[in-house]
Design a protein around this nucleic acid. Structure first.
Lengths: 196, 196, 196, 196
DNA sequence: CATGAATGAGTTTTCATTCAT
DNA sequence: GATGAATGAAAACTCATTCAT
């Protein structure tokens, strides 16, 4: 393995380590040593692979976003989403979003953390905006295959709803059957979207 | 002003100071001295009025939640929501939520911060759950006046949607006309809710 | 009650309050507010009755020392120690010391605290030296009634032993039957002292 | 020097620094920075080598106790205490205790400090009890070689006396010839112990 | 006299970052 | 490349003391 590659591998391992750290503690309370320990590296090394703590976070964001977008795109290709009818494609895509994103508790937790950081941190906010742009773009391209009319509006609304549900799934599942509520709305969303 | 009153007044002033601080920095980076400065108090006084930083946060949450619930209830009384038809009451309530909560950028920002803290902090999580229970309860009681069927489910979904929009309004308004999207869905929500 | 008297009464109450505080915490961790609370006074008042925390301590020392010396002298008078034989007087005095001083756990605790403060605090050290001078003087005057030869030496040694036992009684009673050990040595001490 | 060794060396240096600090100030007024300065270390390092101030104290106690016990045991071996008669061994041991412990002013000062801390601090109290158990055990094993009858009782009483004298040596040497008093009692103690 | 609000210096502790080996 | 020792800034919290009312 070349040096370049090794360095990149280590950086990914550090990103993964941060992922695991964020399941336990907010970023602000996660120390360089915590991440190093989780990555089984000496904490000094983190400053070899990254300039500072902020750079780790920014790399982490790129990494987690790319990973999930790749996963989605690979899945879309496998499922030949392109070739399907709007109704079929939409149904599949919502199901994917539900299972892999909305009800993915780890991801939801980490994204709440990321939203919060983004509030006060421009670079993080830009990365976050990129994620949603991509996601909204993907959905738009599915539902707007024939007529683009309102495709973006519907996508934004749909994903806003999914994000709200994701949040409630993390925070309110003790109190309300959030997952069931999402399921019961899946068809409704599809019909709202396709009933144009 | 009596001493009792002064103490409570000071505590509220500190809560207000924290509110202003949270518009600038996350709670974890807001120092006792920041809050003190904002409240025009000596930092030692914050430990006189509150046991520690956590207690300030918990008081702040109670304060902001009570304030918004009171505002809503006062408004509901003024508007005689009780006496109106479901459709009318719902329309008014959604409008209120939209203007006072969902599109209230300061509030949205602070609640993202609170969600994040809640992830790792049980007491805060309980307070947050309380807010949503109350809010969902209020909406349920409006739309469930005649038949309680699905009232809770519809309320949870509606508020999840509003929360998602609120988030997007903060984060994505540069990119998407989030406010307009919300407006265009207001009628749709009402019809989904009342079409049972 | 005159002002003078009231002030003196309050000062004694504060000394008593400090006494109770010292059973719970070292002086260095006892706050002015702790003492005030224990004395059922406002903490500001302590600075009215005393210049500062140190003055409270110095007053406390005078108070507790005077109290115990008075008690002893009153007892000595009641028992007519002056009129008794050396053997009798010594036996009574050792018994008094044992019960009222050496095995008095509260007093022992407070005196360990005072010794420690005395190590680094000249005024306190002088007061402590005064106590032992008085105590040694009293014992000397009992055992040296006829011949002063060695009276001081024997008194110092006796009281050193009693102080060592007092310490062990506080610290080692779980492990050794310190009280019994003292009892078993009482006669031995008397015989050593009177066997000149 | 290996890293392991360095860490242990530093910890000992810190213990020594605390030793020197305690000759000047009580532990409660000795700051982390004081100890660091005395050890010629950055104050941050003290939290690198020890979790907190309390851990420094506990390590210090283990260190000073082990040091003195080792010294004594080495000395006992050199002097072949085991092979000697009770009278001889006792005489040597008391002389050792007198010179190295009882009249060791620095040690006495530090132990008064430790007693005081022990009053309100369980872990310190346990360590202190351990010291005295060991010390009493050593003396018991010397004087109880033939008959164990009263060996413990005599040891406790002897060491209580020595501790009392140690205390007086620190506090009352200006007033009484404490050292001479101890010397004049050395033979008496031996005869009391061996006259069984 | 009494109250409790206010001040500010001082203390422990944490941690990102640097750097010698 | 590793390691872990070192630095120092910054934070929360404590508390004696002062003082206005």
């Amino acid at each position: 393995m070349g040096r370049r590659i090794l360095k990149e591998t280590r950086r990914e391992e550090i990103a993964q380590a941060l992922y695991r750290c964020l399941l336990k503690k907010p970023f602000s309370r996660t120390t360089i040593k915590d991440i190093a320990k989780e990555a089984k590296l000496n904490h000094g090394m983190l400053h070899y692979y990254f300039k500072n703590k902020e750079e780790i976070l920014l790399y982490f964001l790129d990494w987690i976003v790319a990973m999930h977008l790749n996963d989605f795109r690979k899945w879309a290709q496998e499922k030949k989403l392109e070739t399907r009818s709007i109704n079929e494609a939409l149904s599949l895509a919502l199901d994917y979003a539900k299972k892999k994103i909305t009800l993915n508790e780890e991801l939801a937790k980490i994204f709440i953390e990321v939203w919060e950081i983004a509030l006060y941190h421009k670079k993080v906010r830009l990365k976050l905006q990129y994620v949603y742009k991509e996601w909204i773009g993907e959905l738009s391209s599915i539902i707007g295959k024939e007529s683009a009319k309102n495709a973006t509006t519907l996508s934004v609304a749909t994903i806003a709803f999914l994000e709200g549900i994701s949040l409630f799934h993390i925070m309110l599942s003790d109190i309300y059957p959030v997952k069931d509520i999402l399921n019961s709305f899946e068809k409704k969303i599809e019909s709202v979207i396709t009933s144009r």
